[in-house]
Amino acid sequence: MTKRVTLADLADQTGLNISTVSRALSRPDRVSNETRRLVEKVASQFGYETNVAARNLSRGTTDTILVLASSFSGQAISPIFTGILLGVCEEAKALGLNVMLRQYLAQPISASDVIRYLQAGVADSVLLVATEQWLPPADRGPDQEMLPIVSIFNDLTTAGLTSVMTQEGDGYVAIVDHLVERGHRHFAFVSGPAGSGHEHTRYNAVKNRLSTLGLGKKLIRLEGGPFDMASGTKAAQAFLALKKRPTAVICCSDGLALGFMHTILGSGLRVPEDVAIAGYDGMDYTAFTSPALTTVIQPTLEIGRVAVQVLADIHNGRITTPRLVALAPTFVVRQST
């Protein structure tokens, strides 16, 4: 049987990111003419037909994608999800599909619960946003068709789900390298929620990069909590109580960084003269803080768009085994470092 061509195949052939290929096919007005022509040429050569994705994904009974968005500890849906959901809605509209949003609090989410939505005709496909844990169906063998379910923001490939997310480690490597170039040699990491996969990945990225640079013993960990400003304030209070304070602080999110910076400035310390502070996520407000926050911007719109494209690839048989689609973040240096 001839192997079906996927977005990843087109990305390999063109030398472009998957997100750029997706945008060239679904939003050609948002890329250069040169990029559009290249993608269209390669897609034609390899037999990738974008209308096939739309046709196959809309063969279900509802033409609806159900987005199940997780919350942290009963809090409202994180602002970082807004861009992802917008990308999902834009791509779904381009394919003539509807989007239904539902929030859930329970972790882990059971496959049987999600499959029940599909069997009941609520939706034809499901996007799981920020699902930390997934309990696979016990009665499905490896030779059965993939479920039309994609994980956004968390890597659940080992649990059998194709996943779309950011290359988080790359962003933190960029932060560490930048701070080291600025002369910093003593670091603190403000942690996120205990047990969070993102917190684990981000801390390890910082720790491993510093170890590679011979600075592994120059890192301390400050307990934060949920990705919010209140937790950042708590971490800053612990920082101020230290006898020997690090000169650079790397936070697990922008919310943590903003709360941390507010408390530090209120204590009379200067940013970045006394302590440099960096966040992660790329929330819009970080450009308007004083000082403006150095951060890593997640490609949330592209994550949402690519996730819908991946669902289409699952429906039409282009993707038959779980795979990870990781998009590159953007590091932005501002006044806080």
Rank of each mutant, 00 (worst) to 15 (best):
Q75A: 15
Q75P: 14
S78P: 09
S78I: 02
P79T: 06
P79Y: 11
I80W: 03
F81C: 11
F81G: 04
G83A: 09
I84T: 10
I84D: 05
L85C: 10
L85G: 05
L86Q: 15
V88S: 06
A92V: 13
K93P: 04
L95I: 07
L95V: 02
G96P: 15
G96M: 11
L97Q: 01
V99M: 14
M100W: 15
L101H: 12
Q103D: 04
Y104E: 08
Y104H: 10
Y104N: 08
L105F: 15
L105K: 15
L105H: 14
A106N: 08
A106R: 15
Q107S: 06
P108M: 09
I109R: 07
I109T: 14
I109K: 12
I109W: 05
S110E: 01
S112I: 05
S112D: 15
V114Q: 10
I115R: 12
I115A: 09
L118E: 10
Q119K: 14
Q119L: 11
Q119G: 09
A120H: 13
A120W: 04
G121C: 07
V122M: 08
V122N: 07
D124K: 07
D124I: 12
S125A: 14
S125H: 06
V126I: 14
L127Q: 08
L127H: 08
L128E: 06
T131M: 04
T131W: 00
E132D: 15
E132M: 04
Q133F: 00
W134K: 02
W134Q: 01
P136M: 04
P137K: 05
P137A: 05
A138T: 15
D139H: 00
D143N: 10
D143I: 06
E145F: 03
M146S: 15
P148G: 00
S151Y: 10
I152A: 14
I152L: 14
N154W: 00
D155E: 02
D155V: 12
L156I: 08
T158I: 02
T158Y: 04
G160N: 10
L161Y: 13
S163E: 09
V164R: 07
M165G: 10
M165E: 11
T166K: 00
Q167W: 10
E168L: 06
E168R: 01
D170G: 08
G171L: 09
V173M: 01
A174H: 04
A174S: 15
V176A: 08
D177Y: 02
H178P: 10
V180C: 11
E181H: 06
G183D: 14
R185M: 11
H186V: 06
H186M: 13
H186T: 03
F187C: 07
F187Q: 02
F187Y: 11
F189E: 04
V190S: 05
P193I: 02
P193Q: 07
P193D: 03
A194R: 06
A194D: 08
G195S: 11
S196Q: 04
S196Y: 05
G197Q: 09
G197H: 10
G197E: 09
H198Q: 11
H198L: 14
E199F: 01
T201Q: 02
R202G: 14
Y203E: 02
V206E: 04
R209I: 09
R209V: 07
L210Q: 02
L210I: 03
S211G: 14
L213D: 12
G214C: 05
